[in-house]
């Protein structure tokens, strides 16, 4: 079966009904595409087929004849850096799929658009906050506020390299007496 894989012409000898997911992992040696459920629900196996995200566990090999398949190994994107920086990856098993689904988003998406585009990618670790933060910016999903429980006025504690930029105003939190 001939198709274009990550920009290169590829010829794979495998049964036509073999799942694209297995072809990629077993026949092409590309283990970055993950299996989470095998039923098209979790999105961990997302790849791009002619530029559009698909669940590769639901795509038989025959379906990609003559088409372009892009996997995480062949994607040029800044999304991985953003996810790593903003807490958008924890256990990481869903992350390549998230990166592939995000690749289909236009530039500077808002939070609603990110949530819609990633509705087919299950993440059990992040509550999606870090993912939305990485893709739509910290304004869409703010960094955590950190405060002393006993303080009446939050002191600004600035640490080099700390990305927290959100401490503003006063807190009236008081320690019980």
């Amino acid at each position: 079966m001939r198709f274009v894989l990550n920009g290169k012409r590829t010829d794979v000898l495998a049964p036509p009904l073999k799942r694209l997911l297995d072809v990629l992992r077993e026949d092409c040696g590309l283990a970055g595409t993950k299996e989470g459920c095998g039923e098209g629900e979790c999105g961990a196996c997302t790849v791009l087929l002619d530029g559009a995200p698909v669940n590769s566990c639901l795509v038989p090999l025959a379906h990609v004849r003559g088409r372009k398949v892009t996997t995480i190994e062949g994607l040029r994107s800044r999304v991985p850096e953003a996810l790593a920086r903003e807490g958008g990856t924890q256990c990481g098993i869903c992350t390549p799929g998230v990166v592939m689904a995000a690749a289909a988003l236009g530039p500077k998406p808002n939070a609603a658009r990110v949530r819609e585009a990633l509705a087919g990618n299950l993440c059990r670790c992040t509550g999606y906050a870090g993912i939305v933060r990485a893709l739509a910016g910290p304004r869409a999903a703010p960094h955590p506020r950190v405060r002393a429980a006993g303080a009446t006025i939050a002191r600004k504690r600035k640490a080099p390299g700390d990305s927290r930029t959100h401490r503003r105003g006063r807190t009236t939190t008081t320690r019980q007496g």
């Binding site: 970055g32 995480i72 990481g92 992350t95 390549p96 640490a159 927290r164």
Partner: peptide, 27 residues
């Protein structure tokens, strides 16, 4: 440089996001 109290990125975050981290089914 201080380490505690800083939101440094997770060590293996990039490997996970780029799909190069190896899980058991990848071996």
């Amino acid at each position: 440089m201080r380490s505690v109290g800083r939101s440094v990125p997770r060590r293996e975050g990039l490997a996970k996001a780029r799909g190069t981290a190896r899980y058991v089914d990848d071996l």
